[in-house]
Design a protein around this nucleic acid. Structure first.
Lengths: 243, 243
DNA sequence: TGGAGTATACTTGTATACAAGTATTATAGT
DNA sequence: ACTATAATACTTGTATACAAGTATACTCCA
């Protein structure tokens, strides 16, 4: 990883990860942030040289990113797809789709222990806000939704989540880092929204759930765009990257 | 691929596939069919020896199967999850979920060219029935649904489909092979159902679509079980496989 | 100047080699 | 008989080597 001396992905989250995963995480962040522009053609050899590892983990990383739809493997080279506004909307379509499905299942279950778990996570989010820790906040935010999704024990819904999660996480990370700097007041609203969500789960109130879900999405979806643009600005003066 | 002299996956569909893909397809079929029982621990070295290839494509295949949730990669060895009744139901949950989503989008589009394309595919299915070609029928059946799903141009819905497709395809292949032998009369109903589906798309009739979708699922879901069990019977006398 | 064909510098896919870690088995001591 | 420890036979992860194919650039010829 010679050319960049700072990483976009939190290094402490990678303690047990293999080199391949590490590369995937970092590459993903660079693509989502726009540091590596969409349309760029990535070559295994160049990446291996850049990251100073062999081609094996690079190949692994590229397969992962291809399965997440942010690159496309072609006969020669991997083409970066990236995340335009369209893709971001689509991601939230899917998230809405699966969380709605999950909620329908939740209604038929005992949700008390889940609600408790979510309250704990929300507490952690508050602490992260208090200490201005954007990464930790993002982590807990993602965990919040993951906890809900996993709670119904549906392996194929979980599979979809697993495919979506890395990109979601990256998006949220970038978004939150920006907001901690510039839109600190947003967080009171975010916390409130999550409280609503917990209430909806506890009360099994479909209306309330849909409401908080949509607000959450409208919120994030709107902001993600300008964050993304700002990241792209930021990236312009750093690296030509494509030859 | 020393120990088995017949493949479960149609070889002519693999003309351009890499060794890694080939192994994934074949391994997937063996797992879905029950030939390799769930709980079995697969080792890269053993698989490489069995398939008479190196570990590189085997590793690739295992990653693919892991992302499809039919095996689980652990510290030592890959554990076969397989498809129990629960998993099969879950797969259809997801299929229902995404096809319903797709239909909602379709309603807002011009569906004439799609309906035409589907008619063509259905014609091909009829030909396949006429010539008793279970594999070709399965191929067209899968293509039928893929055509619908891709038609809305939603890359993340397509992504979910891509993850689901291989297992679906395998399931349908095994199911159809059996029915061509034992339940030939089923096919008039299947064809009728697909015609209904096309009508629903052409008329943008939500009710009709849900109806045909559900009938299709109830149909397949019921039958898949006994096929699967019969396959498992079949597998008992063939290979110990584990060690 | 233009075009056909060839050399070259890339690309990915697969095989192999090696390192580091883990489970199992065997052995020694009590 | 049983525990602790050591040897061994596995496992995966990563690096490297090689083969085969593809795009690019170059040269030669008209």
């Amino acid at each position: 990883m010679s050319e960049y001396n700072d990483y976009l992905y939190p290094q402490k989250w990678l303690s047990k990860a293999s080199t391949g995963d590490r590369v995937a995480y970092e590459l993903r962040m660079r693509i989502i942030s726009g540091l590596i522009e969409s349309g760029t053609i990535l070559s295994e050899n160049k990446l291996a040289a850049d990251f100073e590892v062999s081609r094996s983990p690079i190949r692994e990383a590229l397969r992962i990113l291809a399965s997440e739809n942010i690159i496309r493997l072609e006969k020669m080279g991997a083409v970066v797809i990236g995340l335009s506004e369209k893709e971001i909307e689509e991601i939230y379509d899917v998230r809405l789709l699966i969380e709605t499905f999950v909620f329908e299942r939740l209604i038929k279950m005992d949700t008390t222990s889940l609600a408790l778990e979510l309250s704990k996570t929300l507490e952690m989010m508050k602490v992260a806000i208090k200490y201005n820790d954007a990464d930790e906040f993002s982590y807990q935010d993602v965990m919040f939704h993951e906890t809900i999704i996993r709670s119904i024990g549906h392996s194929y819904i979980t599979m979809i989540w697993n495919n979506l999660k890395p990109v979601m996480e990256g998006l949220i990370l970038l978004s939150m880092r920006m907001r901690f700097k510039e839109k600190y007041e947003d967080f009171t609203r975010i916390v409130k929204n999550h409280e609503l969500y917990i209430d909806a789960i506890r009360a099994k109130d479909r209306e309330l759930m849909i409401k908080s879900l949509h607000e959450n999405f409208d919120d994030v979806q709107g902001k993600v765009e300008d964050l993304w643009r700002s990241q792209q600005m930021l990236s312009k003066g750093v690296e030509p990257q494509n030859d």
